[in-house]
Amino acid sequence: MSCFGLPLTYTEDLFLNQFPQNDYFYFSIKKGLTTHANLWADVVHSMFDKLYLMIEVIGLTYSYPGSQPLTFPDISCNKGNTHLILGKSGCGKTTLLHLMAGLLKPESGIVEIAGSDISQLSGAGLDKFRGKKIGIVFQQPHFLEALTVQENLILAQKLAGEKTDQGKVNQLLDHLGIGSKKDKKPSELSAGEQQRAAIARALVNSPELLLADEPTSALDDENCNAVVKILSELAIENNSALVIVTHDTRLKNIFPNQTILA
């Protein structure tokens, strides 16, 4: 939502995100304001826009050896906002996600996360940055199989260089409804529970940027809605920017901020 950048409006953003068919309602608020107030709203918006900008991708290109270079459109997403990157398989969606996560190095362009250009970081510094500031949810939930769900979350804290925060782990797992499964091995959980545990792992360090790679494409409608709801709710609670990369057209109508890759 690019109308109000104020914290108070987050709930409203969520509200509108949840009911995209009621987009007109959002515009009617603007319509109802006086021209003067409307102007002010736009000024305030542009001021806070920069302040609340969490990720900005500018002029990004990448090329795999022996194939055409990929050029990506500029993307930006604010704290608490959700941005959808849509595209068919093979159009470089995952590559873009990996570039944004610092897992790949761009040929050119800038990936700026919370004010730092991650293309300037490298080695262990980039790894630490990634662990602390970026949470990633994969289509297939991955875990360290030898560890329990809880231990996986604690390891995520440790590896990011954060202190172990058992309270946060418990709260997050409870919030996701899998608090009772925290001492189980990930393989003992159902597919839905695994996906929620993976979301918990991605969020355990309160990352500034939450990247989701096809989080819903393997799920039925019901689970799809549940996961989308959880992701966007938690992104708002954590004040994270959420970027979802998907070919799942069901999401198209849920999140208005979209970039379509060709």
Binding site: A101, L103, G123, A124, D127, K128, R130, G131, K132, I136, H142, F143, L144, E145, L155, A156, L159, A160, G161, R201
Partner: peptide, 14 residues
């Protein structure tokens, strides 16, 4: 698992 550890912040040396 190893890739995930890198995603979670572990370095190559880790």
């Amino acid at each position: 698992e190893l890739a995930l550890m890198r995603v979670m912040g572990s370095s190559r040396n880790g």
